[in-house]
Computed example of a mutant assay.
Amino acid sequence: MAQTAGHSLAVVTGASSGIGHELARQCARNGFDLIIAADDPAIERVAEELRALGAVVETVQADLATLDGVDKLHAAVKGRPVDALLANAGHGLGHGFLDQDFADARHVIDTNITGTLYLIQKIGRGMRDRKQGRILITGSIAGFMPGTYQAVYNGTKAFIDSFSFALRSEVQDFGITVTCLMPGPTDTEFFERAGMMDTKVGQGKKDDPAMVAKTGFEAMMRGDGDVVSGWKNKLQTAMATVIPSGVLAEQHRKMAEPGSGKD
C-alpha cells in the first residue's frame, strides 16, 4: 500500500457496515488513506467505495475478538505511522444473561473490550513514540445504565467509556488525544445481529449512522474527550447520572425485554 502524498493514515475497525463504515467514509473525505478491518467479506465492497473518494485503502478481514485477529491487522500497518485509530468494532447480545450461550457472551466481551484494548495498546505505543496521534473509541450511552436483557453489552460499554477517559489522562503529555464517541440507538444491523428485533428499542426510531459518525469524527479532529450524539441521548445521559441504578435497570427492561416490541 503506497500512501497518497500528503495523506495521513487512519485505521478503522468494524468498517464493513453501520457507524464504522461511515467513520471510514469521513476519513476518506478528509484526506486520510485507510486500513479498514472487519470480520465480514463486505469490507471489500466498502473499500471500493472509499477508493472512489480518492483514498488509498487496504482491507483486513479478521475476527478482532481474537489476539491473532488483532495481530493480523497490526501486521498490515507494516510499521507506518498511524495518525488516527478509530476503534469501532463491537457487537451486542440480547435476552437474559442466564439464557445466553456463554460463548456468545464471551465473544461480545472479547470484541468490545479485549480486542479493542489490545489494538489500542499496539498502535498507541507507536503514537507515543512519535508524540502524535488521535484515537477515537466507540463507547455508548448504554454504558451509563444497567442493561437489563442486554447486561453483557452494557457492561462492556461502561468499561469502554471509563477506560477512554483514563487513557486520555495517561497520554495527554505525549501529543495523543483520546475521544469517546457515545451514540444511542443507531440505524444499523446491531439490533438484528443481537437478536433484539422483537424489543421496543429494536423497533423504535434510531439515529442516522452518517450523522453519528460525522459527530464522532469532528470531535476526534478537535481532540475532544467525549461526545454524545443527538440531543435526546445527551438528555438521557444527564438523567442517568442522577437516577438510581435500580430505576435505570427497570427502565431498560421495558425497552429491551424480549417481546416488548409486540403490540
Rank of each mutant, 00 (worst) to 15 (best):
M1S: 01
Q3L: 02
A5D: 14
S8P: 14
L9H: 05
T13W: 08
T13F: 11
G14D: 13
G14A: 10
A15K: 08
A15N: 02
S16P: 10
S16K: 06
S17D: 15
E22F: 03
L23K: 07
L23A: 09
Q26D: 12
G31L: 01
F32A: 03
A37R: 05
A38W: 06
A38T: 00
D39M: 14
D40F: 05
A42I: 08
A42C: 08
I43H: 10
E48K: 06
E48A: 01
Q61H: 09
L64S: 10
A76P: 13
A84V: 07
L86D: 09
H95K: 05
F97Y: 07
D101V: 07
R106N: 15
V108T: 09
D110Q: 04
L117T: 00
Q121S: 12
G126S: 15
R128I: 12
R130G: 03
G133E: 03
G143W: 11
T148Q: 15
Q150T: 11
V152W: 00
T156M: 00
A158L: 06
F159N: 10
L167W: 08
S169A: 15
E170M: 03
D173Q: 08
D173K: 08
G175H: 08
G175F: 02
I176V: 08
C180T: 02
F190I: 06
F191V: 00
E192C: 02
G195P: 04
M197R: 15
D198K: 11
V201G: 13
G204A: 06
G204L: 02
K205F: 01
D207T: 14
P209E: 01
P209S: 01
A210F: 05
M211N: 09
V212D: 14
K214G: 07
T215G: 04
F217K: 13
E218I: 07
G223L: 11
V228W: 11
K232T: 05
N233R: 04
V242G: 12
S245G: 08
S245E: 06
R253D: 13
P258N: 14
G259S: 10
S260Y: 04
G261V: 00
K262M: 00
